[in-house]
């Protein structure tokens, strides 16, 4: 789990580890995951697009189950995400890159995005670096957070970002454990829509929904 480094190791409480472990144990892979050719990218365009869709679905559902918001390809390769140990089949780094790249395109529904600043994106893509896996797009996340604020009647109150993603109050929410950078983005969407405002400086930001 730590190899995926989805969670900031410093802030991960011990209970988190147990929950993710159980999720890992009970996670049911899609049937295609046990089909050996699944791990070879197909040359036939029709088959290939179908295969990429399956991969996209597989990666998203896996990340959702394991609360992964971003993956580092190099680190994730040996995990069950890309390696089926029972079949002893694994997706190669190049193919994994191709899959994630496809997910980041319009064809793939923009379900992934390479992380880093503008200049670093190409580097991350070529080296198989980190990528956000959008099992929810930032717009969707913004909606989810807004709904939560609505549901808990916290409109108008100022929430710290820590409260949103790390506190016990949101433990049952999907966005619990979300990385700060992604959260900033999601809240950015809300700000743009004029539904929220971000205060404060680096490291101690607060957000207010209205």
């Amino acid at each position: 789990m730590t190899s995926i480094s989805s969670l900031p190791a410093s802030s991960a409480p011990s209970t988190t580890t147990t929950t993710t472990t159980t999720a890992q144990d009970t996670y049911i892979f899609s049937p295609i995951y046990s089909f050996p050719p699944f791990f070879t990218l197909q040359p036939n365009p029709i088959t290939r697009s179908s295969q990429l869709q399956s991969w996209s679905a597989h990666i998203q559902s896996y990340c959702r189950a394991h609360r992964l918001f971003s993956i580092s390809l190099i680190d994730a390769l040996p995990t069950p995400l890309f390696t089926n140990a029972t079949l002893s089949r694994a997706l190669s780094l190049r193919d994994a890159k191709a899959v994630v790249h496809w997910m980041s395109t319009k064809d793939g529904g923009n379900r992934a995005e390479w992380t880093g600043r503008k200049g670093d994106v190409e580097a991350a893509e070529t080296e198989g670096g980190r990528a956000w896996i959008y099992w929810r797009r930032p717009e969707e996340w913004a909606q989810v957070i807004e709904d939560w604020v609505d549901r808990t009647g916290q409109r108008g109150t100022v929430l710290t970002l820590y409260e949103v993603t790390e506190s016990d109050a949101t433990r049952r929410e999907e966005f619990w454990g979300m990385e700060g950078e992604l959260l900033q983005r999601c809240l950015g969407v809300c700000v743009k829509k004029g539904k929220a405002q971000i205060f404060g400086g680096e490291g101690s930001e607060g957000v207010k929904f209205f």
């Binding site: 089909f35 050996p36 050719p37 070879t40 036939n44 679905a57």
Partner: peptide, 22 residues
Amino acid sequence: CREQGLDGVRFWENWLVRLPVE
């Protein structure tokens, strides 16, 4: 569909297309 393995290419029935994408 194909599977590229260490021992060469093997061909399979195309379950990639037949199975519905979840």
